[in-house]
Design a protein around this nucleic acid. Sequence first.
DNA 1: CTGAAAGCGCTTACAG
DNA 2: CTGAAAGCGCTTACAG
Lengths: 343, 343
Amino acid sequence: MTEAGETVNGRSARPTSKDVAQAAGVSQSTVSLVLGRKWTGRVSPATARAVQETAERLGYRPNAAARNLRLGTTRTVLLVIPTITAPFFGAVYIGAARVAARNGLAVVVYPPDDAGPAGSPFAAPQDAIDGIIASSMTLDALRGFGPAPLVMLDSGPAAAGAAPAVDFAVEDGMRAVVAHLAALGHRRFGHVAAAVDEWTFRARGDAAAAAVAALPGGTLDRAAGRIEVHSAKEAAGRLLDLPHRPTALICDDDLLAAGAYKAARARGLEIPRDLSVTGFDDVEIARALEPELTTVRLPAQELGAQGMSALLELLEGGRPPSRALPGELVVRTSTAPPPAGPG
Amino acid sequence: MTEAGETVNGRSARPTSKDVAQAAGVSQSTVSLVLGRKWTGRVSPATARAVQETAERLGYRPNAAARNLRLGTTRTVLLVIPTITAPFFGAVYIGAARVAARNGLAVVVYPPDDAGPAGSPFAAPQDAIDGIIASSMTLDALRGFGPAPLVMLDSGPAAAGAAPAVDFAVEDGMRAVVAHLAALGHRRFGHVAAAVDEWTFRARGDAAAAAVAALPGGTLDRAAGRIEVHSAKEAAGRLLDLPHRPTALICDDDLLAAGAYKAARARGLEIPRDLSVTGFDDVEIARALEPELTTVRLPAQELGAQGMSALLELLEGGRPPSRALPGELVVRTSTAPPPAGPG
DNA sequence: CTGAAAGCGCTTACAG
DNA sequence: CTGAAAGCGCTTACAG
């Protein structure tokens, strides 16, 4: 291993544009022009080729700090997400990072854990960024970040009014869930809600309520839990212990559905024979559950990718339009007609 | 929203140390000294205080690019992991990022998805980093990254020979699993192996084989699958279809165990009555499964944290020792004595 | 105790 | 077509 700062023969191990210039017998500015792809019409093709070859041979890579200082730019953007451990946000990150890298940008994730920016012991990276993409939060939570080009993801119309936004059409997804269950014959629903004050969950809850209300004879009870298996089990249990218990549990999230499975099993209810259960998101756990979970697939990676594209457009002075990405109902084996009988 | 480069009253919106100097009536070097905390004995306390107050009032933050250029440092390190979507690596990231932030370092994750560095379309971020932490890979996979201070995580003794390393004591963990099952009375084991050529999985497999071999009457069959539910189900199924089928399935990973659950259910086997199953890692899915999974908890966050600490030490010229973090057997309800009978 | 100056490695007018 | 020079905003000898 050779350390970055090490010198070989009294010379810096990492060549600069000056070194390339010297080796190629041209001026440093010519090197910069050529490698910055601004040479056509200003440098002869032969010289350009020589410079390129010399740079390649010496393994030259421009110094990012110098470039950033000169240009007043950092080529890095901040991705603000509630948590990186949830597979959903991992996918958002991948989508964003992929588009970013294609455009020579780096993505730094913040905050690195579940602690919010406020009161966080973490150094504030917002000093060295060109823009911000925030997912699944309110504009309010972004106050600590100061002014910077901003794109909001999965944050609803309020955020969309203040910044270019990419959302999911979660209401459509939820309506598809209710329609699917209604078509199977269900009328008594339980909503296992995420106890998280975010637009995306309010929208899911409102859409479920509206869709059930539009159903002749439809009823909906609700219990909220944290997005965590045991809290969800407890919430779902409350619904299942109702005197007139629901025949279908609509969960705001796949992990919540895992908790609903536990609550059902604890009561000797078999899914989907005695109880139908649905999730939302379609993360890996949906297919790990037994029976596999009927859920709404949210294109998380696409969300990140489109968010980054919008930020890129914003950075270039454009006005990217806000948009909504459709979800897709994925019917698996956790849903079936309600049990016949007195229910 | 105000863009970073915007000017107000013909003046750059973001103050520099020169602005602070002018406002405080001192030289720019004094500002730098004071804010860099190198002023004691060189600047009078009164002046220092005045500078600090002025900087605060103007909302001054040093320009990172200028600082990096001058210092030849970037204050960012690369975290190279196989994938960010696996909850395990999310935890590693959090641990590393937490320690990094406490020391004013940023962490950039690479590669942003499952594609390896080789042939990846992603820009190479290794041009602007101070060091690298790589988790769960071979030194070989790091060839593209050139020389940089390096710490290896969860990569075994071969890596530890070349760089400071933090590993898990996975062999101990696997021995604890076998001992636990043996104490329950199991003798016929199946090993659902991860089809991943990494030290950590080879070590798990070898430790399981050795521990079972040391058991009077112990037998071990093996089947490998990708770390993905359906592939795991298929691998576990092969083991369960053996003429003399195992009474316990030892899985290299919790997700593999989820597949084993499916294989068992598909054959009408009830866990743990007819079959015991164990996992490894203790990620969220372990508790989402029904019954909850007996597994080995690997302190992933601690791995990231200790890795970053080691890198910090390395960056300061030290020689951090390699070390191994103990796992912990977590006994839940997926393990029980083997069924009595001809088995 | 304080300031003027050099220089990190780039990009980009500007002059020729 | 090519080069000399300025300057981005810092840190750190150096001079006083």
